[in-house]
């Protein structure tokens, strides 16, 4: 299920990803209305969030449900730092650092927790952050949120923001693949597949877990900044604890432990509800049923589906490699 990207070396993948992004940047504004362009922008932000979740959940196997909290901390951190008079790059770096630091503060005391216990603890943390955003009115202006945030002056300009977001997502994607395919990625997957064995061969799994929290929190914080830049206003309901389940669903529907899966999951989960709007009041019921069906038929997620299609095409070319590939697939 993992390491699909290992098939493509970085020198092939990097131009490919950049090419796809440039193509999207040129094509999407021509074909999409202003509304759908904004959906595309939100999709890119969701991709960023799910890539972050993928680090800790997909590669690391740690059940974190706090991604929406880091999203919120990044967004509010950036907004408040900018309001305090800091220039944009400083505020951005400060917000990502803040988010990563909170990630560390959450990761360290939860080291002993596993599985559902960690899931609940991180979910409780997400709920606490949401309640603080709502109730700490002196800092966050409460449920009304904060409006007219200057950002980089591109709020509401969906076509220009598309380029900004594409650049950020491309960089984030390549960074994830680079980490996942390197020695660090091996260690992270070792932690997921057999923590005891990983420990036995000298991997400091505590440090690794905290690092996973930090890096996925940093991705979440970055997504929060992107959201502020895109919208120009924020309110706590965007970062509600329930929204964390959407990111979980995106990661699983796309395919856990696969960067491509994070992208596909976020696209499906953000775009399809918009396409189903013609069903009016039925559309969420239909969408819920679709999620169930996708998972029933493709338990390995969409990335697994796409990659097996590609493999089948390749298999037809060189059928002698067949038995080996299928055995690998079964093992996955």
């Amino acid at each position: 299920m993992t390491g699909h990207q290992a098939n493509l070396p970085m020198r092939t993948l990097a131009p490919l990803v950049i090419g796809v992004c440039v193509l999207c940047g040129i094509i999407l504004p021509r074909f999409l209305s202003v509304y759908y362009l904004q959906v595309a922008d939100v999709t890119l932000i969701n991709i960023l969030l799910v890539l972050g979740l993928n680090f800790i959940l997909g590669f690391g196997g740690q059940m974190s449900l706090a991604q929406c909290a880091f999203f919120g901390i990044g967004a509010y951190g950036f907004t408040l730092l900018q309001a305090a008079g800091m220039p944009v790059p400083v505020a951005a770096i400060g917000a990502v650092t803040l988010s990563a630091a909170v990630g560390m503060a959450l990761g360290w005391p939860t080291l002993r927790l596993k599985g559902h216990y960690l899931a609940l603890c991180t979910l409780a943390f997400a709920l606490i952050v949401e309640r603080l955003l709502v109730n700490w009115e002196g800092l966050t202006n409460g449920a009304n949120g904060i409006t007219a945030i200057p950002g980089i002056g591109l709020a509401g300009e969906n076509d220009k923001m598309l380029w900004v977001l594409l650049a950020i997502v491309a960089a984030a994607y390549l960074l994830q693949v680079w980490i996942a395919n390197g020695p660090l990625g091996l260690r992270i997957r070792g932690l997921r597949d057999d923590p005891l064995a990983a420990q036995a061969v000298g991997i400091d799994i505590s440090r690794l877990k905290i690092m996973l929290f930090v890096i996925s929190a940093a991705y979440g914080g970055l997504a929060g900044i992107c959201y502020v830049l895109l919208r120009g206003y924020i309110s706590p309901d965007v970062f509600s604890w329930q929204s964390t389940f959407s990111y979980l669903a995106m990661a699983v529907v796309g395919g856990l432990g696969s960067s491509l899966g994070a992208v596909l999951g976020a696209i499906l989960y953000t775009f399809v509800p918009e396409l189903l709007r013609f069903m009016q009041e039925y559309y969420f019921a239909v969408f819920g049923a679709m999620v169930i069906l996708v998972i029933t038929f493709f338990p390995a997620g969409l990335a697994g589906l796409v990659l097996s299609v590609f493999r089948n095409l390749r298999r037809r070319e060189k059928s002698y490699a067949r038995s080996d590939v299928t055995r690998h697939e079964r093992a996955a």
Binding site: L57, Y282, I292
Partner: peptide
């Protein structure tokens, strides 16, 4: 139908069910 699916996938399926039921 999901009894052999990975645990997390089954959880997400119940989230889909939850969404559908509320709607």
């Amino acid at each position: 139908p999901l009894r052999n699916a990975p645990q997390l996938s089954a959880i997400v399926a119940t989230l889909g069910l939850s969404m559908a039921l509320q709607n």
